[in-house]
Amino acid sequence: MKLLTLNFLTCAIKTCKTNSASFPLHPRDAELEIVEADVNLPFLKNILPRLMWDELRGICTELGLPELPATPPTPADLIQPSSSTPETTDAAPIAEADEEPSQTAKDLHRVLLETCIQEGKLVCGACEHEYAVKEGVANFLLPGHLV
């Protein structure tokens, strides 16, 4: 399960879901794996405004990953400045397809999309319920008395 998914998950227990302490879930005993994938710049740009930055930073710290910057990058931060292509003489605007990901974009891609929790638990900060992650798939089925 890629870390981006944690941005869109909370506790499955109904009474807990509305408690702000249930977000984000906290990885525990996590075995991480890097699953390489191509950088998708439009995707990163789209997802950027949806990220709960402080919470994601917290998760990275808990997992012992390199620290994310204090403030989220802007969409412009994700694009490599094109000054290094002096040969182009025509003034045509750079098409979106030609944009290259910046180091910031690559770092974000590595954390959100390539860093995966393969085994471990996700723990609710409000009720402390633990959800197991096995073979990269998190299981949110609740025991009967909690439904």
Binding site: M1, K2, L4, T5, F8, L9, T10, C11, A12, I13, K14, K17, T18, F23, L25, A37, N40, F43, L113, Y131, E135, G136, V137, A138, N139, F140, L141, L142, L146, V147
Partner: peptide, 24 residues
């Protein structure tokens, strides 16, 4: 869910419709 989880870049989890962990 395991079969479905092969569909990158989407994410797949195991959950019950009446107790979803997706935030409201």
């Amino acid at each position: 869910a395991k079969i479905a989880s092969k569909n990158e870049p989407h994410s797949v989890i195991v959950a019950d419709t009446l107790a979803l962990p997706h935030p409201n």
